[in-house]
């Protein structure tokens, strides 16, 4: 806590957050490009998500007359909760002052706050689709959250800190150690990330088919800048999970001290890591079909099982060994 009045640190943290927020659409663009190539389609430009967002920001906002004030506040709440989440995650450097504000449990709490308002907004207009989306989203989230926390607990028990920055620091200092618990935790977190960010096989971000949509159903009534904020928040969430997985399980390369060379290296490394992760996701999304809604609990139970195995192998194999 002693260094939280460090001005340079705060500036860097703000820059990192701005980078995080502005780069999120690019990540989605890259993912779409990869998927299009894999599916033998002509790919949209890498910057297409930015064009979509700016188009939406300029459009007129239409709000249903049955909507309450909560409907108009929700996009701002969802977006700012997601931005604050992004602000506390180490992207290119550890030991920034923002990291101490919230640890990894609070981070899960921010995502839950965003989801809470997203689901309420889905119920607000009073159409059938919105309620359907909210109900499904909250069900999936309530099964995914324990698996995610369990996987994270495995990490924090190893590093003896729930502070992400300290935990990553600890892992860097340990060097390359193969931990069975981390394998399981990684698998669990990958499955949860797919479910939470609404990717195939749990949800399909490009569908508007009534029977299958989850996330899209909740934001169906939004338009203009409200829709843009909701979309941007979803893109940001994808990037948040990507960075979490990349920097927790493969922390090498992140800037441990705040020198220009280390920061540049950190930036290059995280870009590389995210590009690779997106490639994995694109392959998975191309190879798999979307599953039925009531198969999703089984999918998430598998994630929970992996997380539990990770925890058990940590307690049995690694503590005291």
């Amino acid at each position: 806590m002693a260094d939280y009045l460090n001005l340079q640190g705060w500036l860097l943290a703000l820059l990192q957050t701005a980078l995080f927020v502005t780069a999120a659409p690019l990540l989605v663009g890259w993912l779409r490009l990869l998927k299009a190539r894999l599916q033998n389609r002509r790919a949209p430009a890498l910057t297409q998500p930015y064009r979509d967002l700016s188009k939406l920001f300029r459009k007129e906002v239409i709000v249903a007359d049955t909507a309450s004030p909560l409907f108009r506040a929700a996009p701002y709440i969802v977006f700012s909760a997601t931005v604050v989440t992004a602000a506390v995650i180490p992207l290119i450097a550890v030991h920034l002052p923002t990291a101490a504000i919230a640890d990894v449990i609070v981070l899960v709490g921010f995502l839950a706050l965003a989801r809470f308002f997203l689901a309420l907004a889905g119920l607000d207009v009073g159409t059938a689709f919105g309620g359907m989306g909210s109900s499904r989203e909250m069900t999936i989230a309530s099964l995914g959250e324990p698996a995610m926390l369990m996987a994270i607990f495995t990490l924090t028990m190893t590093a003896q800190s729930t502070n992400l920055s300290h935990a990553i620091d600890f892992l860097l200092a340990q060097g390359l150690v193969l931990r069975p618990s981390f394998m399981f935790a990684l698998l669990a977190l990958l499955l949860v990330a797919v479910a939470e960010t609404g990717r195939i096989p749990v949800d399909n971000p490009t569908t508007h088919l009534e029977l299958t949509m989850v996330h899209e159903a909740m934001i169906l009534e939004y338009s203009g800048r409200h829709l843009a904020l909701m979309e941007w928040a979803a893109q940001l969430k994808l990037m948040i999970y990507g960075v979490l997985i990349a920097n927790i399980f493969f922390p090498w390369g992140i800037a441990a001290e705040l020198t220009p060379t280390a920061l540049l290296l950190g930036l290059a490394v995280i870009v590389l890591k995210l590009m690779l992760l997106c490639a994995v996701l694109a392959v998975a999304e191309t190879a798999l079909a979307k599953m039925r809604l009531f198969r999703v609990p089984g999918f998430l139970n598998l994630a929970f099982l992996f997380a539990l195995l990770g925890m058990l192998s940590h307690v049995i194999l690694e503590v005291g060994a």
């Binding site: 309450s68 909560l70 809470f116 689901a119 009073g126 309530s142 099964l143 959250e145």
Partner: peptide, 21 residues
């Protein structure tokens, strides 16, 4: 954690059904 996540769903249900729509 499971309880907390289900609790969030519970109160989305309560508030969304009673006060919204």
């Amino acid at each position: 954690a499971l309880t907390a996540a289900l609790g969030a769903m519970l109160f989305v249900r309560l508030y969304g059904i009673a006060f919204l729509g």
